[in-house]
Simulated assay, not measured.
Amino acid sequence: FPSSSAGAEEGPSPREGHSLSAVPGSGALVLFGGSPAFRSGEDGHATAWFNDLWIFQSLSEGALGEGGCWYRIPCQGALPKPRASHDAHVIVGGDGTACLVVHGGLVQQRYRVNDTWRVRLPKRNELTNLFRPAWEELGSADADMVPVPRFHHATCIVGTRLVVFGGHNYERRERNDTWVLEAGPATPVAAACWHKVAGSGGDPAVQVAGGPSGGRPAGLHPSPRAYCTLTALGPNGPVVLYGGSGARGQHFKDIWVLFLRVGT
Rank of each mutant, 00 (worst) to 15 (best):
I157M: 12
T160W: 00
T160H: 08
T160G: 03
V163A: 00
V164W: 02
F165R: 03
F165G: 05
G166T: 05
H168E: 11
H168N: 14
H168L: 15
N169K: 04
N169C: 12
E171R: 15
R172C: 13
R173K: 15
R173A: 14
E174I: 04
E174L: 05
N176Q: 13
N176K: 10
D177S: 12
D177N: 08
W179D: 01
W179V: 02
V180I: 11
E182A: 14
G184S: 06
P185D: 11
P185E: 12
P185M: 13
P185T: 11
A186I: 09
T187Y: 00
A190V: 15
A191V: 05
A191Q: 15
A192Y: 09
C193V: 14
C193M: 14
C193D: 05
H195D: 08
H195C: 13
K196I: 10
K196R: 15
V197I: 08
G199E: 08
G199F: 07
D203A: 05
A205C: 15
V206N: 00
V206L: 12
V208Q: 02
V208F: 01
G210P: 02
G211E: 01
S213Y: 10
S213C: 09
G215Y: 09
R216P: 01
P217A: 12
A218Q: 13
A218Y: 09
A218C: 13
L220T: 10
L220S: 07
L220C: 11
H221R: 12
H221C: 12
S223Y: 05
P224V: 04
A226E: 07
A226L: 07
L230T: 10
T231Q: 12
T231L: 13
A232C: 13
G234N: 11
P235L: 11
N236A: 14
G237V: 09
V239Y: 05
V240P: 08
V240R: 10
L241F: 07
L241G: 01
Y242W: 13
A247V: 11
G249C: 12
Q250L: 14
H251E: 15
F252E: 04
K253C: 14
D254M: 06
I255Q: 00
I255K: 01
W256L: 01
W256C: 03
L258S: 03
L258W: 01
L258Q: 05
F259M: 04
F259P: 01
L260E: 07
L260I: 02
V262F: 11
